[in-house]
Design a protein around this nucleic acid. Structure first.
Lengths: 343, 343
DNA sequence: CCGTTTCACTAGAGCGGTTTAGTAAAACTC
DNA sequence: GAGTTTTACTAAACCGCTCTAGTGAAACGG
């Protein structure tokens, strides 16, 4: 048997197609008695709306898009991405909105997908991640006039609403903590300078370092990969004026850095304190467990979902929102630095 | 200006709607000259098909579904999932098929999504992961008659085609390797017994142990979490007859186990060899790097995508396929066990 | 040169919904 | 109780595309 259409329901209930449509959508124009009868027939016949048919009549497609331009490896590796995905999902599925995921090669391909999906009416809105300096995707989405929410900022995302984290404040608090422990030589294994947040963190470290009179607060940019994280760590630990504390911009790099320290015979935390700017399972399961600045990525996904749904319902109504301030979870990888006596 | 429809193109090119449709879909019925002219007009007007309209006329929805019933944490944590996703994407996007992702609470919800998406014509097919013993999803998908490909098996997936790995063979090779190094006391931190592959691995270990006359080849089932992986390791390492080698069913548990060993002062690999049944970034970046059985999860995703597309194109044409046999990458976490002299 | 086949193209009926315009009856006005 | 408004419902257009049936002209066959 083929799936029932509203026509079948209409026939069975002895009313017109339109009456069925009204009843099923909770619209006025049918009496309560008729409405109940229609609903009963519909559920008896196990009717479900045909998404495409609805979308064709100008309605929503009930889906949002997430397009990511990253190498496959990164997507598998970073817990951030999976958690964000799960959080988005949770926020969307409550209103049974689907998530269309697309993983592409580069930003050009990403923009092409935005264009295509918009004109095909494939999705009702987009979530934009990995905000970059002078991001080319922003003007395109603005031009397309499609609802979109940016994760990142503040600044650099034009008129699109964003959910942003105060990376500057986070970095300052991190440095304050390490300085309070007595660290004077702090180094930073940073991410990719193409990203806004990386730049902000680097700048914040510089400022804090000046304010607290730290020695050599150097930031080494990387591409976020474990390989570059490891080699940056190796270089820093080999320098004559070896830092006593390292700040890593990602959990993956922090773990890689930890391995380098072990390999070089540098004890953590006795000889080196390690802090990660990102928290996850990774930082928890290694030994020693890594002190990390944690934000609830799952919750973040949910928040973005809510913002995007609002932007779809009422374009222009959504404004920038500052996400929860990340909190430091102290674990086993940080302590006061070596003193001469100990050494 | 509103987006162009085939009617606009028809008017501009001076032909009928149908001629445009034929031309755009590469169907016979138009002369080469007319076809070229229509295509030129279409691209000039920047026309794109309206997905919903196409889908409504009985065509495909050009999307496949992946529904996962797992806690959010797991999805973020396991590289497997992200890599699979990326691989699937790569395989699908070549034919510009979208991936609809849905993360749900439990199997009941998952089945509900299968029902809904099928009757809504939301997707053309499904990918089924985490195959369980007596899996309830299989008969539902069979009943719905929707194309689907299972990752897992062999066996237990009814008439649905599956891409399966030979877990038994893999476990045997692993045990052979450890036995060749001289290990006699091998223990296994297993996954969830609800999963088919976990059961097969446990059975294989038992068989190998009997064949090789190993002592105490015990398997401890867990829920795949780092916490249970850690406590299983703790228990095994505390037993009077401590194993000299541990096999972990997942990378996350292997890393957690490594941390427990460090915490208990058990040196790896000197005092304990560690092997992971799954390879990923995780096993590579920790210290010591973990010897692991690796399969190319990204490629696996691509293979599944290809199978599903074939199943959609020609239902019933796709048969079970055995995936590539995982290969052992030896790293720093394995060596011959302690001998009495060394101890 | 007439009948048949092929070709290039058009008209128009769906696909499964939504929505507007219209209608008959019931319910209010005063 | 005639006129107006409201209510409950129907008919049919419409969304953008696909595809079948049909048409007129050109090409072919003998």
């Amino acid at each position: 048997m083929t799936r029932p259409t509203i026509d079948d329901i209409a026939r069975r209930a002895g009313v017109s197609k339109s009456a069925v449509s009204f009843a099923l959508n909770g619209r006025p124009g049918v009496s309560p008695a008729t409405r109940d009868r229609i609903l009963a027939v519909a559920s008896e016949m196990n009717w479900r709306p045909h998404k495409a048919a609805r979308a064709l009549s100008g309605a929503r497609s009930d889906a949002v898009g997430l397009v990511v331009a990253r190498p496959a490896q990164t997507i598998g590796a970073e817990p951030f991405f999976g958690l964000l995905l799960a959080g988005l999902q949770a926020g969307l599925s409550a209103r049974s909105i689907a998530l269309h995921l697309m993983i592409v090669e580069d930003t050009a391909a990403e923009i092409e997908v935005y264009r295509r999906w918009t004109s095909e009416r494939h999705v009702d809105g987009f979530v934009l991640v990995d905000l970059q300096h002078r991001d080319k995707r922003v003007p395109v989405l603005e031009e397309l006039g499609v609802p979109a929410v940016v994760i990142g900022g503040p600044g650099g995302h034009g008129t699109l609403p964003s959910l942003w984290a105060d990376d500057r404040e986070a970095m300052l608090s991190l440095v304050d903590y390490l300085a309070a422990l007595g660290h004077r030589r702090i180094a930073h294994v940073a991410g990719d300078e193409a990203f806004h947040h990386t730049r902000r963190r680097i700048r914040a470290l510089k400022d804090a370092s000046r304010r607290l009179h730290l020695v050599d607060a150097v930031s080494v940019p990387t591409d976020f990969s474990d390989a570059q994280g490891a080699s940056a760590t190796r270089a820093l630990l080999s320098s004559p004026n070896r830092p006593s504390a390292l700040i890593f911009d990602s959990d993956v790099m922090a773990v890689a850095g930890l391995a380098v320290a072990a390999e070089m015979g540098v004890a953590v935390p006795a000889g080196l304190s390690v802090v990660s700017f990102e928290d996850s399972l990774l930082t928890r399961i290694v030994h020693p467990a890594i002190t990390a600045l944690g934000r609830d990525t799952f919750a973040l996904g949910g928040q973005v979902a809510a913002m995007l749904l609002a932007a779809i319902d009422e374009p222009g109504s959504v404004r920038d929102v500052q996400g929860a301030t990340p909190r430091l979870t102290v674990r086993e990888s940080t302590r006061a630095p070596y003193t001469e006596q100990e050494a």
